[in-house]
């Protein structure tokens, strides 16, 4: 089983990103679950989602304490939450940032400027850049699921083609 913990802020689309990750894995023929952990449902608060991917049905509903992968949609959360807590020794990190933030330097970290991609494509809703579709492209590049399944998941969920464009851009730009 592969376990992912996703950190975001309320309103950034973290819950949808988690669902897209599960859906893309599901389209790869795997079993997958996406479980947002809700506190009060308000914008801006740090929230966390748990994604599990496996070859057999997943029976675990509890939180992920030792993730294989940590995804951070908002680097400012690094100052508030220890997003690396419990990360497996060989675990990976993906951060939405133009460079590697100092707190993440000692981990096996990759980064991509998802916010920049969203702004470039004017993929903005109610003033917030959309991060949940570009991050799927970056994760496909990391091998979490196939590029085709990532595209399928996005197209099943959104009709605006810029979402797929953003994902492909992130796929190319992942560092």
């Amino acid at each position: 089983m592969y376990e992912i913990r996703l950190h975001s802020r309320g309103g950034q689309g973290g819950v949808t990103a988690a669902k897209l990750m599960a859906l893309a894995s599901f389209r790869d023929g795997k079993y997958a679950t996406a479980a947002p952990f809700y506190g009060a449902e308000r914008r801006g608060a740090p929230i966390v989602s748990f994604i599990r991917i496996d070859d057999k049905p997943i029976k675990i509903y509890s939180q992920i304490h030792n993730p294989d992968l940590v995804v951070v949609l908002d680097p400012s959360i690094l100052d508030l939450v220890n997003v690396f807590e419990g990360l497996k020794p060989d675990g990976k990190v993906l951060i939405n940032a133009p460079g590697v933030p100092k707190q993440a330097e000692k981990y096996d970290v990759q980064h991509v400027d998802l916010t920049g991609i969203a702004l470039k494509l004017n993929l903005v809703v109610a003033g917030s850049p959309i991060l949940n579709t570009p991050v799927i492209g970056a994760l496909a590049k990391m091998g979490l699921f196939s590029r085709e399944s990532a595209a399928a998941a996005i197209q099943e969920t959104f009709s605006d083609e810029r979402n797929l464009d953003a994902a492909l851009m992130a796929y190319e730009e992942l560092v």
Partner: peptide, 12 residues
């Protein structure tokens, strides 16, 4: 069905 644990989890 269990609140959040099942109501909000995505599965097949």
């Amino acid at each position: 069905l269990d609140g959040f644990t099942l109501s909000h989890i995505s599965q097949q």
